[in-house]
Design a protein around this nucleic acid. Sequence first.
DNA 1: TGCGAAACTGGCCGGGTGGCCAGGACAAGG
DNA 2: CCTTGTCCTGGCCACCCGGCCAGTTTCGCA
Lengths: 123, 123
Amino acid sequence: MSEDKTHEIVLALEIDDPALADRLAMLLGGVAGLRLAAPGEQASAVIVGRDPRVMPDDIALTQRELDVLALMAEGASNKMIARRLGISVHTVKFHVGSLLDKLDATGRTDAVAHAARRGVIEL
Amino acid sequence: MSEDKTHEIVLALEIDDPALADRLAMLLGGVAGLRLAAPGEQASAVIVGRDPRVMPDDIALTQRELDVLALMAEGASNKMIARRLGISVHTVKFHVGSLLDKLDATGRTDAVAHAARRGVIEL
DNA sequence: TGCGAAACTGGCCGGGTGGCCAGGACAAGG
DNA sequence: CCTTGTCCTGGCCACCCGGCCAGTTTCGCA
C-alpha cells in the first residue's frame, strides 16, 4: 500500500436532515483532495448531525454531584468515592440520593444510564 | 436575526488524528458557504474520526447474559429481572456474576458502563 | 442581618448485592 | 459413554445500598 497521504480524504455522510445532507454533499463535492464515500465504503472520517440529546438545560446538577456521578460511572462504590473525594461515606450517599432524585433513577446503575443517555456524562 | 439558511454551514472538527484534522481544516477552510466552528461554538454538524471501539469480536456473551444485561441497563434489580425472565433470583445472580467476570466489572453499574462503551448494548 | 442553598457529617435499618459453596437437566461433540 | 458448555436452582453470609432521621458550616444574596 502506497501511502498517498496527500490525496483523497474519504468522508461519509450520516445526517438525518435531508436538506442539510444535500447542501453538504453539494459543497463538499467540489473540493479537490476530498471525496464522499460510496455507500458501504470505509471512510476516514464521518460527518454526523449535531447530537440533539444534550440540551435539557442540564437538569441543574451541582459540581459535587457531577464529581460523584463521574466516579459512579467508573463503577466506584460509595466507599471508593468517599476516599477519592476526601469526604465521608455519608456525604457520598447524600449526593447519590440527590442524583437519583434529579435523574429519576431507581438506583445508581439506572442513574448513570440516564445520565449517559442525556449526555450529562460521557461514558 | 435573519435566517440565511442557504449560507454558512458550521462544522465542528472532533478528530483525534492531528494530521487528518489539519488537512481537513485546510481543505474545508477554503470552501464558500461553509465555516469551521470556533471552540465551543454550536455547530450544525460534526466531523468525527471513524469510531474504533466496535470490534472486540463480542466478548462472547450468551443469549441469557444479554437478556440480563439489557434489563440491568434499565436499572432493574435482580428481583425484577427474575420476575421478567421467569427465573429465580439465584439464577439472575449467577448470570450477573458471569457478566461481571466477562466484562471485567466490579459491579453491575460498572458492567453496563463497560458494555455500553464497547457497543455490546445501546443505552 | 437574616435566610436559603450547597456541602458536609452522623446513626439507624431493611433490603439488595456479590462471592462462595453445592447441585441438576439437557444438548452437542469427542 | 463421557465430557463440555449453557442454563437453571438452592443456601449461606458479609457487605453495600438507599431512605430515614438528625445536625453542622460556609457562602452569596436580599
